Amino acid sequence: QIFVKTLTGKTITLEVEPSDTIENVKAKIQDKEGIPPDQQRLIFAGKQLEDGRTLSDYNIQKESTLHLVL
């Protein structure tokens, strides 16, 4: 699982696999929060994550925290 922290300070927990794409993660966030993926920007280690890449591409491991910017 990974954590996604929103600007409001809320933390969302997501069940993911390293092979999941960023697009996939955004879809999971939409399921939980109702935020359309095209409004979501995910930041990890100061980098904006691209939809077509996977979590493992960015070396995002379990218990990692991503930041969600709208």
Rank of each mutant, 00 (worst) to 15 (best):
I12M: 06
N59R: 07
L49E: 00
L14S: 01
L66P: 02
D51G: 07
V25W: 01
T6Y: 14
E17C: 14
K5P: 01
S56G: 10
K62E: 11
I60K: 01
L7R: 10
L68Y: 02
P37A: 15
I29R: 00
K47R: 12
Y58W: 02
T6G: 06
T6R: 06
F44E: 01
Y58A: 03
G46K: 04
H67C: 15
F3L: 06
I35E: 02
T6F: 15
D38R: 11
I35N: 03
T6C: 14
Q61G: 12
Y58Q: 03
K62I: 12
L55G: 00
I12W: 06
T6P: 04
K32I: 13
E17T: 10
E23N: 09
L70C: 14
V16R: 02
L68V: 05
G34Q: 06
Y58T: 02
L49P: 01
D31E: 14
T6L: 15
D38L: 10
D57R: 02
D38S: 13
G52W: 13
K28E: 03
Q39S: 08
I12E: 01
L7K: 11
T65M: 09
E50G: 04
I22V: 10
Y58R: 01
L7P: 14
P37T: 14
V16Q: 02
G34N: 08
N59K: 10
E23W: 14
S19N: 11
E63P: 03
D57C: 04
D51P: 07
T13A: 09
I22G: 02
R41G: 06
K10M: 10
Q40N: 03
I22H: 01
S64P: 03
G34K: 06
K62W: 11
D31V: 14
I29P: 00
E63R: 07
D51N: 13
V4G: 01
L55D: 00
S19H: 12
G52R: 09
E15M: 13
I60R: 01
L68I: 05
G46H: 06
I12Q: 02
A45H: 13
G34R: 06
Q40M: 15
R41I: 14
Q61V: 12
I29T: 01
T11G: 03
G52Y: 11
E17D: 12
E63S: 10
D38F: 11
T65Y: 08
D51Y: 05
R41C: 15
R53I: 06
L49V: 04
K26W: 03
Q48F: 13
Q1F: 15
S19M: 11
T11V: 15
Q48H: 10
L70E: 09
Q39L: 10
E63G: 15
K10L: 11
E23Q: 13
L68E: 01
F3Y: 14
E33P: 01
D20C: 09
V16I: 09
I12L: 11
I29L: 07
Q40V: 10
G46W: 05
E23A: 15
L66R: 01
P36Y: 05
S19P: 03
K62R: 09
S64I: 05
L68G: 01
E50D: 09
E33N: 08
L7A: 12
F3C: 05
A27H: 12
L14E: 00
K28L: 11
V25H: 00
Q1M: 14
I35H: 08
F44V: 03
H67P: 01
L14F: 05
L55I: 10
T8F: 13
K26F: 03
A45L: 13
S19D: 12
T13I: 13
D57H: 13
S64W: 05
E17Q: 10
K28G: 03
Y58S: 03
Q61M: 10
T13Q: 08
V4L: 05
P37M: 14
Q30E: 10
V4Q: 00
G46F: 05
